[in-house]
Deep mutational scan, measured.
Amino acid sequence: HDVTIHAGDKTIHVHGASEEFLRIIEQAKRDGIHEEELLRLIEELVK
């Protein structure tokens, strides 16, 4: 999957995102996670 995530003034493109990655991001959004926290989460996941 190619994913584009908008968080605040940043746009992150993730190529080859796994289903698990997508679920984590969707869950985080539903939980109302702060955008900066979401960015950190994404950066950890894509290392």
Rank of each mutant, 00 (worst) to 15 (best):
H6N: 12
H13K: 06
V14H: 03
T11C: 02
I24T: 08
G16Q: 10
D2A: 13
I24Q: 10
I42M: 03
I24A: 11
D2Y: 15
K29Y: 14
L38E: 00
I33H: 03
K47F: 13
E43K: 07
E36Y: 10
E44H: 10
Q27A: 12
T11W: 12
A28P: 00
E20I: 06
E19S: 09
A28F: 09
F21H: 06
H34E: 15
T11F: 11
E19H: 10
K10M: 13
T11M: 10
V46L: 15
E36T: 12
G16D: 11
G32V: 02
D2Q: 11
E36L: 13
D9V: 01
V3F: 13
E44I: 08
E36N: 10
I5H: 04
G16Y: 10
T11H: 14
L45I: 07
I5D: 02
H13Q: 12
H1G: 11
A7P: 03
A7D: 04
V14Y: 06
A17Y: 08
D31N: 11
T11Q: 09
Q27T: 08
V14S: 02
L39Y: 12
H1W: 14
I25L: 11
E36A: 13
E20A: 08
K10W: 10
E19R: 06
L45Q: 04
R30H: 12
E35H: 13
R40A: 14
E43Y: 13
E37P: 02
D31V: 03
T4E: 11
G16A: 09
A7L: 15
G16V: 10
K29I: 15
R30I: 11
D2V: 15
I25D: 00
E44P: 01
H34V: 12
E20L: 07
H34L: 14
G8D: 04
R30D: 05
E44V: 03
E36S: 12
K10E: 06
I12E: 02
L38R: 00
L38S: 00
E26N: 07
A7W: 14
A28M: 11
H6G: 06
H15E: 09
I12F: 12
H34I: 12
I33Q: 03
G32K: 04
D31W: 04
I25Q: 00
H15Y: 09
H1L: 14
D2F: 15
D9T: 04
L39V: 13
K29F: 15
Q27C: 03
H1V: 15
E44C: 06
K10F: 12
E20R: 03
I25A: 01
I25K: 00
R40S: 09
L41T: 01
H13W: 06
H13M: 12
H13L: 13
I12G: 01
H1F: 15
R23E: 12
I5W: 02
D9S: 04
V46Q: 10
F21E: 03
T4W: 07
G8S: 05
L41I: 08
E43V: 09
Q27G: 04
E35I: 14
I24F: 10
S18F: 05
V46D: 04
T11E: 11
F21A: 08
H13N: 09
F21R: 00
D2L: 14
E26V: 02
D2G: 13
G32L: 04
I42K: 00
A28C: 07
K47L: 15
E44K: 07
I5R: 00
E19N: 09
A17Q: 05
H6S: 13
L45A: 05
G8E: 03
A28Y: 10
I33T: 06
I42S: 00
R30G: 04
R23Y: 11
H6W: 06
E37W: 07
V3C: 10
S18D: 11
I12H: 04
D9F: 03
L39D: 02
G8I: 05
I25W: 07
L22K: 06
L38I: 09
V14I: 15
D31F: 06
E37G: 08
I5E: 03
D2T: 15
R40T: 09
D9I: 02
V3R: 00
R23W: 13
E37C: 06
E20C: 02
H1S: 12
S18N: 10
E36C: 11
K47C: 15
H15D: 06
E35C: 08
E44W: 13
L22M: 12
G32I: 02
K29E: 09
K29Q: 15
E35P: 15
V14Q: 02
V46A: 08
T11Y: 10
L45H: 10
G8H: 07
E35F: 14
L45Y: 15
D9Q: 02
G8K: 01
L39H: 04
K10D: 02
A17C: 09
E19P: 11
E26C: 07
A28H: 03
H6Q: 14
A28E: 00
E26K: 03
H13F: 11
Q27I: 07
R30F: 10
H15A: 11
D31H: 06
G8T: 05
T4M: 12
V46G: 07
T4D: 05
I24Y: 07
L41C: 01
